[in-house]
Design a protein around this nucleic acid. Structure first.
Lengths: 200, 200
DNA sequence: CCGTCGCCATACCGGTGGTATGTTCGTGGC
DNA sequence: GCCACGAACATACCACCGGTATGGCGACGG
């Protein structure tokens, strides 16, 4: 039986996470104090330390929050019923679009490797957006759509390229134009490794 | 006339920078205190604040130190007398190799965007390694070696891919193997956008 | 030989992450 | 219905660190 107190507890916890996501996005990890996070959630540091072991834990909760959101949207597309190649393209577009979210940009891509440490970040990314990209590439290869390439390193290259590209888009004055340019270049490159079975 | 004091002053300054590079590489920006940096340079925080305006300035000095080193090696190769395509390949190899330097990894690629802020980092990178990569790509296009692609975004994609790839190499158990895989994939992709003028 | 100023050390302050302790109130047993 | 218990917080406090203000010492120009 779920008690009334459990509701309250989860409510304040989620309020803390939400507050953390906002502040970390705006001012970064080092630039936001725990008092601020607690204050925005209308509690004190005591409550924060009851729910989390420390500042790092709060950050990781915010990280999970942001990543889970992206992952959900990506999974929906990648499990669709279109042809593998079109699914991948749609996923690519969705990922680039998601990268424009300032929270994902700063928390998941910029600060997470520094705050969590690279090893832990990589491990987490395997379960989130990077894992999905790798899976999508593997599917393409399995379906015979692209040449056999080392999946691990190739998806790593692709992920790195897309992340920095997305950051570029996000900060550019004309997001639409830069976004189309990037998508164009990426698709052009991908088409090069695509098996030409559909032709001839 | 360069006085004796100027020598001393520059000596302690460079000692501080060297100390900062070491500590920032080992423990990261947030994990190292100014007292530690000063102590390793056998001075006190007072000396540090005489030479630098604050912690950020110390970091930027360390950043410049690391970047200038890489830039020097890259420039030597890219201004060589080989054919454009071979020059670019040699530069690519050199850059991947340079990325394995833990200081460059952590200070210039990981922490700098967070510590300096993305905009300032990007601005600085334009004058260092990224600028050289962009120039190299532009040269290839000018020489008619590769198809005309949007230089800015393409080099951004390439830079991002290489950086994350290099991080992957640096942390892998078998650096040689992963390094060759990555180089292979990148060259394969580059060959795809290469103009086939040499054939036929 | 002396005043000056660059170079650096010492002392101190405010803020922040973390801990220890106190307080409230919902919950389950009787 | 009541009470003891513990979860869910609040409060008070400490250690450390970035930054500032001040003091001293020795080299350099006059």
């Amino acid at each position: 039986m779920r008690s009334r107190r459990d509701d309250y507890s989860e409510s304040t916890r989620s309020a803390l996470v939400e507050s953390a996501v906002r502040l970390f996005t705006e001012r970064g990890y080092a630039g936001t104090s725990l008092d601020e996070i607690a204050k925005r959630a209308r509690v004190t540091k005591g409550a924060l330390y009851h729910h989390f072991s420390g500042k790092q834990a709060v950050f990781e909760a915010a990280f999970d929050e942001v990543e889970a959101d992206i992952k959900g949207r990506l999974e929906k597309i990648l499990s669709g019923s279109q042809a593998p190649w079109e699914r991948a393209l749609a996923g690519l577009r969705e990922f680039i679009g998601s990268c424009l979210d300032p929270s994902y940009q700063r928390i998941a891509l910029q600060e997470a490797p520094v705050v969590m440490g690279w090893a832990r970040w990589r491990e987490a990314e395997d379960r989130y957006s990077f894992g999905l990209i790798k899976q999508a590439l593997q599917d393409l290869i399995d379906a015979g759509e692209v040449l056999a390439v080392p999946v691990e390193v190739t998806s790593r290259l692709l992920f790195g390229a897309l992340c920095s590209a997305a950051t570029e888009i996000a900060h550019s004055a004309d997001q639409r134009k830069v976004g189309e340019q990037i998508e164009d270049v990426v698709v052009r490159l991908l088409n090069q490794v695509r098996r030409q079975a559909t032709e001839a």
